[in-house]
Design a binder for these strands. Structure first.
Length: 419
DNA sequence: TCTGGGGTCCTAGGACCC
DNA sequence: TCTGGGGTCCTAGGACCC
């Protein structure tokens, strides 16, 4: 059986762990730049604040309802996630970390307790040890575990946050209850098409013919149907090596010249290189993109990307920066207000198994240099060592007006308790 | 004034090979 | 009159997830 453990309103719950005074009150967390709402407590959801709501448009509603607003604090969320996953892995080594706030556990047959009791044990320990409430769905397939999780979340009173689908009647009842757009793997486009055919629930979906599903939703849809029918088709995926890595940001203001863009792109390339080294990969291709603000149709729009094949695989921040700046220079045009840029690296090879080429290869001396930079940055704080092309004067700032302390990852931010 | 960031997988079609 | 058959690799685009 698969158990899906999902943290409730994860980012909002993280903010509450060290602010117990906020329990029962509406809390929202904003995206980078304090742009839009990316997490909401149940109380905030009840105020009809949608996911992705632009913060500036909802400011009056926040004020009126005393909504507690936070800037995204990914240092905190990442650390809390790590704590959660560590606790879950104690219960079950056979685990897939599916996202920052979700994990699938593969439960082996239990002797002493029922599945439901097991789920309750996991829920209690996870919540007590991290302070974050979780919901758990247990079922014979991953897609059905997702369905069970939905039920646990939707009916916290009745289920106490744990729901098990272990009989066919329960499976069918659940599928008839779940509307098609809530099914894992069915997004907006598929919903539109299915609704047009009068397919409204997950159950309706399982009644479609294999041929139709395969033709219109490809093999992915076929797998989903199997899973919903209770036929295990998807297994845990444990390989955690990424296939693409990106660092992209919107800017607080618009840039019209290439200089500030060069600085941003350098910083993004350095960040990609760091992430590459963390997973011991080198990349063979790099893409840079820039674009104007799509929400301003009154301004001239421009959007381009440039993908370059590197002459040799590398994870050196210096080399990637050089290539990224080259790419940027090729696509930059004056006369536009740039709002966003990014660097994406792809086409990886293992760092310890790099194929050399005859004429050009990476600067080997960068390897120990990057190790030293990584070490210093880890010791003295992120980006302590930077390239000269980066923002050495710390001019660039993300809008983060409501940032909470880094309670768990910064010594000076640890809370003091007065007794 | 102000609207996020980071991923995965699949398919069709073109270019190429013998 | 009539013009084969069987592959691989790559890319862009579309769908999805959190």
């Amino acid at each position: 059986m698969f158990a899906l453990v999902d943290c409730n309103n994860f980012y909002a719950s993280c903010e509450r762990v060290f602010r117990p005074d906020l329990v029962g009150k509406p809390v929202v967390v904003l995206s980078n730049n304090d742009g839009c709402v990316i997490a909401r407590s149940n109380e905030a959801k009840k105020l009809n604040i949608p996911m992705g709501a632009p913060a500036f448009k909802y400011e009056p509603l926040f004020q009126k309802n005393k909504v507690h607003v936070f800037s995204a604090n990914f240092a905190l969320y990442g650390d809390m996630s790590h704590r959660m996953m560590t606790i879950l892995s104690d219960f079950c080594a056979d685990m897939e970390i599916y996202s920052i706030d979700e994990a699938f556990l593969k439960l082996s047959p239990l002797q002493d307790v029922s599945l439901h009791e097991k789920g309750c044990q996991i829920r209690d320990k996870a919540t007590q040890w991290t302070g974050i409430p979780v919901s758990i769905g247990i079922a014979p397939t991953k897609a059905l575990a997702k369905v069970a999780n939905h039920i646990a979340k939707k009916y916290p009173e009745e289920t106490k946050g744990v729901y098990v689908i272990d009989q066919d009647e329960k499976r069918i009842k659940a599928l008839k209850w779940l509307s098609i757009d809530k099914v894992w793997g069915i997004g907006r486009q598929h919903t539109k098409r299915l609704n047009a055919m009068n397919i409204k629930t997950a159950y309706d979906f399982t009644q479609l013919s294999d041929t139709w599903i395969k033709k219109h939703l490809s093999i992915v849809g076929q797998r989903l149907k199997n899973e919903l029918m209770g036929i295990p088709t998807l297994d845990l995926e444990k390989l955690n090596i990424k296939k693409t890595i990106a660092t992209t940001r919107s800017f607080d203001e618009n840039y019209t010249s290439i200089e500030p863009l060069k600085e941003r792109v350098s910083t993004f390339a350095v960040s990609c290189a760091e992430k590459l080294r963390k997973q011991h990969s080198c990349c063979n291709s790099l893409m840079v993109f820039i674009h104007t603000n799509g929400h301003r149709p009154d301004l001239p729009q421009y959007s381009r990307n440039m993908l370059i094949k590197l002459p040799y695989p590398t994870n050196s921040g210096i080399e990637l920066t050089q290539f990224a700046i080259q790419a940027l220079s090729l696509i930059f045009k004056t006369g536009y207000h740039y709002k966003k840029a990014g660097v994406i690296v792809m086409d990886f090879t293992p760092a310890d198994n790099v194929q050399q080429t005859l004429f050009q290869h990476r600067n080997e001396r960068h390897i120990p240099l990057m190790q030293t930079i990584d070490m210093l940055n880890q010791l003295y704080g992120q980006q302590k060592i930077r390239l000269a092309s980066q923002d050495t004067k710390r001019v660039w700032k993300m809008k983060q007006e409501k940032l909470s302390p880094r309670y768990t990852t910064k010594l000076s931010d640890i809370i003091t308790i007065h007794i």
